[in-house]
Amino acid sequence: MNIHTYEKVWIVASMVLIVGFIATITYGAVGPGIAMIDDDGGDINPDEINDDERFAEPGVEHVGGNEYEVTVVAQAWSYTPSEIEIPANSEVTFYVTSRDVTHSFSVVGTNVNTMVVPGQVSEMTAKFDEPDEYGILCNEYCGEYHHTMEGKLNVVPEDEFDLTELSVEADDEIDAGNETTITANVTNGMQEDLETTVSLEIGNQTQEEDVTVPGDGSEEVAFTVDSADLDEGDNDWTVTVDDYEESGTLSVVTPEGNESADGGDGDA
């Protein structure tokens, strides 16, 4: 071989460049700890997504500490859930799978970005330090309305975040003279206990009860309402826990055959 000196120098420089690139990337993996999407998520039959433990109810779950899991199902042309809320200063592991064709799950303006291949679960973990709002988009062609496939990821301040859910069971009407119960069911998705106050406003009355909802559990609070405290006819009620509230109406009716029957049931 007859290689010019300059060319030999260039070959060495090229190798230095190549090795330097590989070294930088290895540094990225070891130093800042950047991991590639890999086969950790496992595989899944797309037909059985609804029966899957993880994907049956996609959404945010608290694992403990500042760790969360978010499961997302992608399909033409939406994500379920379409809007994700997580707290700042959290470590979030996403599990994403597809019901139909290949999509992507890309959080715009970040390095959180994965392909979503049917039959596979993409698993990736990222830390969200600051509150922010991100768009999510699909960057893999998935059919003719591909360009409409988007979602949102809202990172809210830690103190504004909870996984509390409130549901209320209450009768629609109550016979005058009777008592009824309005039952608030408070679910706590966080792993820590939730100490809070459940309050019921009805008529011009307020009842309050302090509860401790266990981590990953729920608590029922029953408020007893006496029709004697209420006006005849419709009474609006509101149950409040932290920022959540549920409202309804309770009608006090006079039972038929009662002495005050004056030709009309209530104020109908």
Partner: peptide, 29 residues
Amino acid sequence: ILVLLWIFMYFVEFLGNGPTVVGMALTVV
């Protein structure tokens, strides 16, 4: 040019573009 742009792209554009996918434990390749 290659070296300078590489450094710029990796350390400014890429590492500055967080959040980034990280390993639960350090993955050693």
